[in-house]
Write a protein that binds this DNA or RNA. Structure first.
Length: 472
RNA sequence: CGCGGGGUAGAGCAGCCUGGUAGCUCGUUUGGCUCAUAACCAAAAGGUCGUUGGUUCAAAUCCAACCCCCGCAACCA
């Protein structure tokens, strides 16, 4: 039995959970459940990133103490994770005192690679903060809140010397010691790595108050990276305790937008700390709304809660794990979602369960012994390559095949002809087939597979009172 | 000349690396079945594979040029 550690990206909690977060959680959850199926012990992290100016300002706008505001948001995300049926074992908030203290220790241990230098950036004196180049461009150089042009401001910050680690990071990625998935992202990362400058890892307290203080320098506060990325190991107890039982992580799941930080800054930190790199860094794509990126300004944002409420959790997981490609961007439309629900969940799987259960009941078939389950080699191969949506396809093909077999073997005809023994065998075979597919589907739609197991493996078989996926 | 992905039946995609009768899912049409959630099974129709040129006995697949979409470009998953 292996010990397996799986992580998700920690969302910045200045807004409501959205579909992108759900993708990250669901993919990590499938992997965690799969590894448990393989007999491994899994530690599964989830959490929230709670520092930074945006959060601080938002709480001020709302007139709430910042501690209350972040707590409220953390709970929102915790609820969301629960709602998605994510089998996490640990939840981290970056405002946990243990995390903050451990971050400071991590900073100290990295101090050989940290130096002080001038930071130059666009600044709004109204907002009292630095803004990104992107924000600058979007607003044409004028702060929309204060109608004042941004000014160039220079201050002293700490920098992490990425240059110290480039060769080792490149080596780890190229050799597969840290495998970056999918392949096309790996190429991107290697290219980015070459031109990656040192990163600014602190801000002056005048600019940033809501963050972890830099040790031994009252004038500086940590700026996102060391604070946020450290969460993956501080939650394991680093550096207070030995984490080698769980670290390196078997897989870390991130969105494509933050891959670069996880593939460059994070490995740099780990190498600096003398820790091994995660075995797999998986970057998933975005969910598009009818071909377009979801954005508030376009107004095409799909609320995950609304999707969840439509047909329940497993319909949600089904769509986002099968019809949304594990690696590439994919589309969500309500029409596609409804089609998948009706044609696949209801007609393929739901109906299969219904007809088999009815056949078993009418002909008094039950399983004499607990069936043994096996994962097909093809399925295992895909799962091990993190090709989750393809593995799901693989299993679904078996569902459709069972429907085909029922038609071919015509158990109702055997019943009519009084071929009882043949009938019993036939149905038992089909049921075992279903339960075996069910087993392979369990990382994806665990609620449903549990119900199916109970229907067929619990003695007397009868169809569920209400269909698994009622049509609307 | 920033980087990357893509243009294949009405829709969504696979095939391209390792050239050789163009495949899958949904939708449409027809037939079959009756255990089942008007569900299931089978068959059919439907494509000059973005454009042009080249290599080759043979190109969706290799090469060149061009056209058109869409992402990313220091913190939006």
């Amino acid at each position: 039995m292996n010990k397996v550690y799986v992580t998700t990206a920690i969302p910045y909690v200045n807004g409501a959970p959205h579909i992108g977060h759900a993708m990250d959680y669901c993919l990590a959850d499938v992997y965690a459940r799969y590894r448990r199926l393989c007999g491994d012990e899994v530690k599964f992290q989830a959490g929230v990133d709670e520092h930074g100016n945006k959060i601080f300002q938002k709480s001020k706008e709302l007139g709430l103490p910042v501690a209350d505001y972040v707590k409220e948001n953390a709970e929102k995300f915790m609820d969301f994770v629960e709602k998605l049926g994510v089998s996490y074992t640990d939840f981290i908030r970056t405002t946990d005192v243990d995390h903050e203290r451990r971050c400071q220790e991590i900073w100290r241990r990295l101090s050989d690679h940290i130096y002080k230098a001038k930071y130059e950036g666009w600044y709004c004196s109204g907002c009292e903060r630095f803004i990104t180049q992107k924000e600058y461009d979007e607003n044409n150089g004028v702060c929309p809140d204060h109608q004042k042009p941004y000014e160039k401001l220079v201050e002293e910050n700490y920098y992490l010397r990425i240059a110290d680690f480039k060769d080792q990071i490149r080596g780890a990625i190229e050799s597969g010691e840290m495998s970056v998935l999918p392949e096309f992202r790996k190429k991107e990362v290697l290219k980015l790595l070459e031109e990656s400058p040192d990163v600014s890892v602190s801000r002056s307290v005048e600019q940033l108050t809501w963050g972890v203080p830099v040790p031994d320098d009252d004038s500086q506060v940590m700026y996102v990276w060391i604070d946020a990325l450290s969460n993956y190991i501080t939650i394991l107890g680093y550096p207070d305790s030995d984490i080698s039982e769980w670290w390196p992580a078997a897989a870390q799941f991130v969105g494509k937008d933050i891959l670069r930080f996880h593939a460059i800054i994070w490995p740099a930190m780990l190498i600096g700390l003398g820790l091994p790199l995660p075995k797999v860094l998986l970057s998933h794509g975005f969910v598009l709304a009818d071909g377009q990126k979801m954005s508030k300004s376009i107004g095409n944002v799909v609320d995950p809660i609304e999707v969840l409420d439509r047909h329940g959790l497993d319909a949600f997981r089904y769509y986002f794990l099968r019809h949304v490609d594990t690696f590439a961007d994919s589309d969500f439309t309500w029409e596609k979602f409804e089609d998948a629900y009706n044609n696949e969940l209801a007609n393929d799987l739901g109906n299969l369960v219904q007809r088999l259960a009815t056949l078993a009941m009418k002909n008094d078939v039950k399983l004499v012994e607990e069936p043994k389950f096996e994962m097909d080699a093809g399925y295992v191969e895909l799962m091990d390559k993190f090709e989750f949506s393809k593995a799901f396809d693989y299993a679904w093909d078996k569902v459709q095949n069972l429907n085909k077999r029922i038609d071919e073997e015509k158990p109702w005809a055997l019943a009519k002809n009084g071929e009882t023994a043949k009938l019993q065998n036939c149905l038992r075979d089909l049921i075992c087939g279903l339960l075996n597919v069910n087993y392979m589907l369990s990382p994806f739609i665990p609620g449903t597979t549990e119900k199916i197991f109970e229907i067929f493996a619990g003695g007397d078989i009868k169809p569920p009172r209400t269909p698994l996926f009622p049509k609307h």
